[in-house]
Amino acid sequence: MRLGLILLAVCCLWLSAAPAWAQAIDLSHGGQITVTARGGFDWDQKAQTVTAHGDAQAVRGNVTVTADRLVAFYRKKPGAAPKATEAASKPGGAIDDTGANEIYRLEAFGHVHIFTATDQAWGDHAVYDIDQAVLVLTGHALRLTTPTDVLTARDEMEYWSKTRMSVGRGDATVTSNDGRRLRADVLVGYSDAPDADKAAPAPKPGTDAVAASGKLRKVDAFGDVVVRTRTETVTGDRGVYVPASGIARIVGNVHITRGQNQLNGAAAIVNMHTGLATMTEAPGARVRGLIVPGENGSGPTKP
């Protein structure tokens, strides 16, 4: 049976300066956090934590966090007067701390799912630093989705709300909804500000979810970079991909492969829309390759 609500008001003066990212996964603003759980709550006044057990859920603004267990870390607001807290131990679990306390950290354990109307993230363990507006996800099957792209990683995922930066570490892959794919040891994605952050009026109901979420602007790739198009595979040491243009630049020990055909060089440009990769060696540099007669389709190109 649901044991009631813990209402943890966390309106901080510094939050008024935080960016209001329309639908992104940002818990650093939005008024009070409401925590509910089927298994009840533990309140540790000495450690200043509230733990929600069993089908736990935290909601702030348009962001929802669900997990097997949630732990909220709180502290007194600077200059806040001491306040009685006996109400926290009463049945129903309501805490009247609207003027004295603020949450600065939220941890989620087990079957973690964080979502808004457009963006979602999954993992086994999540830590959200509200002061820095940074989410760190670890565990198996790490995944972050937006209306246009999917980011996955093996070891860790980070989401920096203030700078609109997503980081995937360990066999990280970003896949667009039209099938374009980029993989590397580390991927760092940067998103544009959504419509609600710009000078124009806030989008009306029914506005395209992509515009409300903020489009992926650029992806930097580091270590064992692999770009796959419909016809070619390009590998290298480092890369940068701009989704709007569909252009990826790969540098360092570059190999372009189509079927049994292969070109090797120092740098390449990949057009993800056309599926063509072009070696871009410096003037006078030599491109090495293996061209197999009879292979279907034209091979990788060079200038």
Rank of each mutant, 00 (worst) to 15 (best):
V270G: 10
L27N: 02
V225E: 10
L216A: 02
G40Y: 07
S245F: 00
G99P: 03
T163N: 07
K198S: 09
S28F: 14
G93K: 07
V226E: 02
V186C: 04
D55M: 14
D237E: 10
V270H: 09
G61W: 02
S245P: 01
R238N: 05
T145K: 11
R217I: 03
A87W: 02
A117P: 00
V225D: 11
G239H: 06
I256E: 12
A87N: 13
A196N: 07
W21E: 10
G40H: 15
T98C: 15
S166E: 12
S89Y: 09
G40P: 15
H140S: 14
Q32V: 13
T274M: 10
I25Y: 08
S89A: 14
N253Q: 14
V35S: 14
P19D: 10
D55H: 13
R181F: 05
A52V: 03
D178L: 04
V35E: 11
L135Q: 02
Q260T: 08
D195P: 10
G54R: 10
M165Q: 15
R228A: 14
M157N: 02
G93R: 13
T49Y: 13
V134C: 04
D97C: 08
D129R: 10
R154H: 05
T229N: 00
Y104I: 15
G297W: 07
V167S: 02
V10F: 11
Q48E: 06
A22W: 11
W43M: 06
T49H: 11
R154F: 13
W160C: 06
I269A: 08
A221C: 06
T49V: 03
L142S: 03
G139K: 14
T85N: 06
A9F: 13
Y104A: 07
Y190S: 03
G252I: 11
S213H: 00
S213E: 03
R143Y: 12
A67V: 03
A285N: 15
A52M: 06
A81H: 12
A88S: 10
G252A: 01
E295L: 15
A58M: 00
S298L: 15
L8K: 07
G92T: 00
T34Q: 13
R105C: 10
G40C: 09
P91V: 01
K215S: 04
V240K: 07
D44N: 11
S191E: 05
Y128T: 09
L151V: 15
G123T: 07
Y74E: 00
R38I: 02
K204A: 06
K198I: 02
A20T: 14
L137D: 08
P293T: 06
G239E: 04
K76G: 09
P293N: 12
A202F: 04
I33P: 13
Y74L: 01
L13G: 13
G179T: 06
D237C: 00
